[in-house]
């Protein structure tokens, strides 16, 4: 009985999580007639790829996909490069007046206000820099927004690593940077992977800034592109679902590929290896 209720709960959780995904997937494969059939056609419908053709060949969703990929990957790399170095110094070096603690907290505090607060200032800054409707503007903004997260997560991973290892490397004749690259980074690789996945997901799904900063097909990301199909006259459910399905795939593949690291990364230090 106990076992049964356990599986029942699990089944409910799975349905709750996956039903919307299933709905999007089936809508993307249904003809417009089937989409609105009542009662809904859960399984029996003739699959069609017309919406995919419509989205990626007729309309510019291919372009949005590329923009999303470029912006996500570039901002993740930038955030990791800057954030990892910052996190390492904050984890390892003591500054006078507890400044290291204060700086860490100050970095975190940039995530404490709602993102929309910065939308207008950022729009004005990007306009003055003539970066509106460019991928560069999104890369800069996403990097800035991912940085606090990278710093705090990586700081935790560094702090858990015994100092002995770096000290041994220094005594062995390596420089600080050499010890970081040859000893520390390989050891926090699982943490790095987990952080990277998180940044990628956040950037990939980001909607608000993409909406504010980009209006042209050339610079638009997938989420904005998809939302744009809700228009005054019609809602292109098929096109939106097709694009939404495609948008899910890269994150899914990436998360599966680094799943091993993700679990290890999030529980790093819990068990001594």
């Amino acid at each position: 009985m106990k076992r049964f209720s356990k599986y029942l709960l699990l089944a409910l959780a799975v349905i709750f999580a996956l039903a919307p995904v299933y709905w999007v997937l089936t809508i993307s494969l249904k003809s417009e007639v089937d989409q609105f059939a009542i009662p809904p056609r859960w399984f029996q419908f003739a699959p069609t790829f017309e919406h995919y053709y419509d989205a990626f060949v007729v309309r510019s969703f291919g372009q949005y996909l590329i923009t999303s990929a470029v912006v996500s990957v570039a901002s993740t790399i930038c955030a990791l490069a800057i954030g990892t170095l910052a996190a390492y110094s904050l984890a390892r070096f003591r500054l006078p007046y507890n400044l290291d603690q204060k700086v860490s907290l100050w970095i975190l505090s940039t995530r404490m206000f709602p993102a929309i607060v910065t939308a207008v200032p950022l729009f004005l800054m990007m306009r003055d820099l003539r970066l509106l409707n460019t991928r560069t503007s999104l890369i800069i903004v996403y990097t800035a927004f991912n940085l606090p997260f990278v710093v705090w997560m990586m700081r935790g991973f560094f702090a858990e690593l015994p100092r002995d290892l770096e000290e041994a490397a220094l005594v062995d004749g390596d420089s600080r940077l050499g010890a970081l690259v040859r000893i520390v980074l390989p050891l926090v690789a699982p943490g790095l992977a987990a952080t990277a996945v998180f940044c990628l997901i956040v950037s990939w799904n980001e909607f608000l800034f993409a909406l504010v900063l980009t209006q042209t097909d050339a610079a638009m990301t997938l989420p904005v592109g998809i939302a744009g199909r809700v228009t005054q006259y019609e809602i292109k459910w098929g096109v939106m679902s097709a694009a939404g399905t495609v948008a899910m795939i890269p994150i899914l593949v990436f998360a599966l590929a680094v799943q091993k690291y993700l679990v290890r990364g999030l529980s790093l230090g819990a068990v001594k290896g």
Binding site: P162, D164, L165, E167, A168, L170, V171, D172, G173, S175
Partner: peptide, 14 residues
Amino acid sequence: TQHRDLAMVFQSYA
């Protein structure tokens, strides 16, 4: 440290 040309054995072996 790295220019002192010493070698050290740590308690934890490191």
